[in-house]
Simulated scan of single mutants.
Amino acid sequence: MIPRELIATAHVPGGDAPLRLIRRGSEYSIMLGANELMNSRLSGSEEAMSTLARAQIGNVVAPRILIGGLGMGFTLRAALAAFGSDAAIEVAELVPEIVDWARGPMAHLHEGTLDDPRVQMHVGDVGAIIRAGAGHYDAILLDVDNGPDGLSREGNDALYTATGLQQAWAALKPGGVLAVWSSGPDAAFTRRLQKTGFSVAEEIVRARRTGGGARHTIWLARRP
């Protein structure tokens, strides 16, 4: 049996339990307590969020994209491929160590995406960027928790409240899309999106690129 090795730990601002970066052979995982937040073998649904969001906004010229959560870089890598050579992509990551891991032990997973000239990296709260970005973005992609609640820290709850969704609406251009990743469905969150005025579609996507693994939910909430 291949042993698990603790590579590094990180503190989540405003959170209680530390993040742990675990390696098992060539496989990496990021854990929060007993919860596995992400695994290097399971990138299918994070990548799908980018391609689905691109399909929602169509052939927008020079799209401006905001990604909440760097993680293992799967969403960013897919966004660079999906949104094209003229895209401008901002990534907000709250935990500085995750950015360090992207340039260190997990650099091979990120494949140099942080050095792409289309990418601007922010270390800080994606909510603050949303609040400051009125009418700025064609797409906002949120993968900061295991669903529309603050699993990693209570402060993230604000992103999914009625007020937080109104702020996301205001940060989007007309026709823009808010995409939210979740480990499962949440009917109450769907209703909040609809009450905000979004046109909402829910996509069920498998965790593995090959189509296997757990079923994850991606909300695609489009501002008319």
Rank of each mutant, 00 (worst) to 15 (best):
L141H: 11
L141M: 15
L142H: 11
V144C: 15
D145C: 14
N146P: 08
G147E: 09
G147Y: 13
G147C: 10
G147D: 08
G150C: 08
G150E: 08
G150L: 06
L151G: 04
S152P: 07
E154D: 12
E154N: 11
G155S: 13
G155N: 10
N156Y: 12
D157Q: 06
D157Y: 02
A158Q: 11
A158L: 01
L159K: 03
L159T: 10
Y160G: 04
A162G: 11
A162E: 14
T163G: 05
T163A: 12
G164V: 00
G164S: 01
G164L: 00
L165S: 07
L165N: 11
Q166D: 13
Q166W: 03
Q167K: 06
Q167C: 04
Q167F: 02
W169C: 03
W169G: 09
A170Y: 05
A170E: 13
A170N: 14
A170D: 14
A171C: 08
A171F: 09
L172G: 08
P174M: 01
P174A: 02
P174I: 08
P174F: 02
G175K: 09
G176N: 08
G176M: 06
G176Y: 02
G176T: 07
G176D: 04
V177L: 08
L178K: 03
L178D: 09
W181A: 13
W181D: 10
W181F: 15
S182G: 15
S183D: 07
S183Y: 06
G184E: 13
G184P: 01
G184K: 12
G184Q: 07
P185S: 13
P185M: 09
D186H: 12
D186N: 15
D186F: 06
T190N: 14
R191F: 00
R192L: 14
L193C: 11
Q194S: 12
Q194H: 03
Q194F: 01
K195Y: 00
K195A: 14
K195T: 13
K195S: 09
K195G: 03
T196P: 09
G197E: 07
G197K: 05
F198H: 10
F198W: 08
S199N: 03
V200M: 05
V200L: 04
A201T: 12
A201S: 11
A201M: 04
E202L: 15
E203A: 15
E203Y: 07
I204H: 14
V205R: 08
V205H: 04
R206T: 08
R206V: 00
R206G: 07
R206W: 03
R208C: 02
R208H: 07
R208L: 14
R208T: 02
R208Q: 14
R209I: 00
R209Q: 07
R209Y: 00
R209S: 07
R209H: 06
T210C: 11
G211C: 05
G212P: 01
G213H: 01
G213M: 03
G213E: 08
G213F: 06
G213K: 02
G213C: 04
A214P: 01
R215I: 00
T217Q: 11
I218Y: 05
I218S: 10
L220M: 05
L220C: 01
L220F: 01
L220H: 02
L220I: 01
L220G: 07
A221K: 00
